[in-house]
Design a protein around this nucleic acid. Structure first.
Lengths: 343, 343
DNA sequence: TTGTACGCGTTATCAT
DNA sequence: ATGATAACGCGTACAA
């Protein structure tokens, strides 16, 4: 158990100074002589001194830890977001506690409780598909812990937000389908409530409008659980396929939904894109290897994580209360492949 | 900044007891009367008391945090491992600090330094493809911080290890290929040094031996960087394809290598499985959607993370030094799909 | 059965 | 320019 780590007191003894002098010298206090500073710093470096984070935290009421709530690390999108977050965190000596809500409101609440009593300095959240009540987030914010929302955001709280440009991504993809000659484009998406759903839906409708294609409510299918349950997606899909006037193209709104849908269509023996075109929002690592290659809208995951973390640390480290907030929106990237090509 | 969190002192004042009595009552000390215990606990619960982790840590020289080093969270395998780790951690009130080595020895060293001076209670490691020097791990272990290795392990340190049964997985896959009638099976794998490489290679050779197929050194190709660099994989592949007597099947040893290889073969217009069969170790979320569906050996990622964390916490929480160590090996799962079917 | 006093490593407020 | 001392919240040896 004996960590060989050295403390300020050790340095004080060795250099025959008081521990407060050491502390000040290490923080470059103006009250300490240059001579002493040098001696202290040299000794500290030589003996690989690092401040004890718990002692610092106890004193300053800061933990230098940031909580993150997202739906699941197994989604490539979030894995990349985490990498973005970490890149900022490690540079600024914060550490990151990641929790997964699995799209479940209760789990999200538990994570929130856990993180709260661990007394994190700040919180980064992509809200779950089930969440409609934000009182807990609000009370955390009011108690002084800054929150930044990313990906799945809300306007129930005033704070920084970071999203992919969902509207533009959905617009681009829909327009691409229209340009390919598809006319009945179905949109299978997540819970109606959440932010991304709305943004993507308007991107979709705007593209239709621009092309003069009438909007058909029957072509919009919601998955309340965001597609965690495969059955849910399959049900919506089969509803679509059984329409009197079925779609000729499908636009899936997320990784999970894309996956389940694509799988289901394959199983049903439906030929893509000949019988039905298919595309979706997705950050799969290898959509080109699918059968056929999958047209995707890719979200700038790393960049989103990075920027969200930067904004959060701004709030955390700000001396005075921040009152003006940024709504960052980062462009998506349309990658066209075989699954949407009209022969 | 004012967290509304309540402390032991607050409870003491409210109940007109000393703070040490409160502390003891909350830990069910035998020296405290049942009556008092009840009152204290009731009050604590009612006011949502939680011990301040930093104060506890400072006192006990424990952080209740566990460091993790792995190559990249963007690999589905590791994402699932993390979920397994977290499932144990959150149940036991530990938190997990995840760092990524990106298969780079220097980064691994930095992560190790970072984690060390954060004074973690234990360390979970899948070593990078480049690592050949274990002195830093050794000194951490000697200084009293327990380490458990998983996935990429080493026998340079004495400790618990958790792996997938790489030998069996490689054996099963190779045998499957042989049963399908393939005779020249190439194996494209990671750095020659690392543990998993060796285990998979012997699984491969054992299957060949059993079938009476001669071993051909030319069919074994190593990627020193573990496939982070696509070019590296492509080079090894093209070497294989240009052999006088080229392979009729390829067995890739990892996610990354599978991906790069499969992609390259597609680009070259090589028909799988007709011209060349293909299979690999991989935890892709949807190998069935590939073109063609990919035969894979899947590693029990969640289970590995879970067991590794459980073993680590055993060490961390053990009162007396542990001297006997477990080498856990968890079965892999062969999933046969089109990419290895002989017509 | 309960209270007092001290220490964990650091920082801040005094004083010198 | 430097030192002594208190405080952050908790746990525990020692007293009572």
């Amino acid at each position: 158990m004996s960590k060989a780590s050295i403390t300020i007191k050790d340095i004080a003894k060795a250099l025959k100074l008081s521990h407060s002098t050491i502390s000040r010298a290490l923080k470059d206090s103006y009250q300490i002589g240059e001579e002493t500073k040098k001696r202290v710093k040299a000794y500290a470096k030589a003996h690989n001194y690092h401040p004890n984070l718990m002692a610092q935290g106890l004193k300053n009421q800061k933990t230098r830890s940031i909580g993150v709530i997202l739906s699941s690390v197994s989604k490539v999108f979030f894995a990349e977001v985490i990498t973005g977050i970490e890149s900022v965190a490690s540079a600024k000596d914060y550490h990151v506690i990641i929790t997964q809500s699995m799209e479940n409101f209760e789990k999200e609440k538990n994570n929130l409780d856990q993180l709260t009593w661990r007394s994190i300095d700040g919180l980064l959240v992509s809200i779950s598909a089930q969440t409609t009540n934000f009182s807990q987030f609000k009370s955390i914010q009011e108690s002084g812990t800054p929150i930044v929302f990313f990906d799945r955001i809300t306007n129930e709280l005033e704070t920084h937000t970071v999203i992919a440009d969902n509207h533009q991504g959905a617009f681009d993809l829909t327009k691409h389908l229209i340009d390919q000659g598809f006319k009945r484009i179905a949109h299978i998406t997540s819970s109606e409530e959440i932010f991304t759903t709305k943004a993507r839906l308007t991107g979709y409708t705007d593209a239709l409008k621009l092309a003069g294609i009438p909007f058909d409510q029957h072509l919009i299918r919601y998955c309340e659980q965001g597609g965690v349950d495969t059955k849910e997606v399959e049900k919506q899909l089969s509803t679509l396929l059984e329409l009197d006037n079925p779609p000729d193209a499908i636009f899936a709104a997320s990784d999970l939904i894309s996956l389940s849908s694509f799988d289901y269509l394959q199983q049903k023996g439906i030929k893509i894109p000949d019988q039905l075109a298919f595309a979706g929002f997705s950050n799969f690592s290898a959509p080109q290897l699918f059968n056929p290659g999958l047209t995707t809208v890719k979200q700038p995951a790393f960049e989103m994580g990075k920027q969200a973390m930067e904004l959060l640390l701004e709030l955390v480290e700000s001396k005075r209360p921040v009152t003006s907030f940024k709504q960052v929106s980062i462009p998506t990237e349309l990658q066209v492949r075989k699954s949407t090509s009209r022969n």
